[in-house]
Design a binder for these strands. Structure first.
Length: 195
DNA sequence: TATACGATCACCT
DNA sequence: GGTGATCGTATAC
């Protein structure tokens, strides 16, 4: 039940990404608690990472990535989807971890509502799907996960290093280096990892 | 102002 | 495996 503190996020993005696996993402809607275990993430690290939204410098859109760690970076994409990231590293260095999939734990009925009755397996097995299931939209951009009462992280279950798989990131269009680095991490064999 | 496109999803063949 | 939906953002005129 312990909430993840600022120190957790204020570290190297790859360390935060790996250790977010198995932690619990909590969303509170009208005092109803929804939660899921994080089972898949991707790291986006700095202006030198061609796939990172900060690759072309600071803009109003990616502003939050440059801010203090432990805040939510939410963006709108493809004209209809939202994705949730957690800001990492020190203030001034733009980096974040994209939450790509959850294993639903609590509040499944509300998630099914938000996902128009999709099978449980498809409630939160993708970055835009989990935002839809948890009703996370642009108004959550910049929210501090260390103090918010409606969106935060709690300690989940312990994950062994052998459980963690790594692969190149999915869906990005960038140079060969960005497309090849294994900065996607997931729990091997988990039913809720995307595709 | 105008245009091209994206860290996706759902549905088609 | 392929494609349309749909619009904010970045970049170019």
């Amino acid at each position: 039940m312990a909430r993840l503190e600022r120190d957790f996020y204020q570290r190297s993005t790859l360390a935060v990404a790996r250790e977010l696996l198995g932690q619990r993402l909590v969303r509170v809607i009208d005092s109803e608690r929804l939660s899921g275990l994080i089972v898949e993430v991707e790291a986006y690290i700095g202006e030198d990472d061609a796939a990172c939204h900060a690759a072309r410098g600071r803009t109003p859109r990616n502003e939050v990535m440059y801010g203090p760690p432990g805040h939510a970076y939410v963006y709108f994409i493809y004209g209809m989807h939202h994705c949730l990231n957690v800001v990492t590293e020190g203030e001034g260095f733009p980096a974040a971890v994209l939450i790509r999939a959850l294993e639903p734990l609590v509040g499944l009925e509300i998630m099914r509502c938000h996902r128009s009755g999709k099978p449980d397996r498809e409630l939160t097995n993708g970055p835009a799907k989990l935002c839809q299931a948890l009703a996370i939209k642009m108004d959550f951009n910049g929210v501090d996960l260390c103090t918010s009462e409606v969106l935060f992280m709690e300690e989940g279950r312990r994950v062994a290093q052998e459980e963690i798989g790594a692969s190149p990131r999915i869906g990005i269009k960038a140079d060969e280096l960005a497309k090849s680095v294994p900065w996607r991490f997931y729990l091997q064999g988990n039913d809720f990892v995307s595709r």
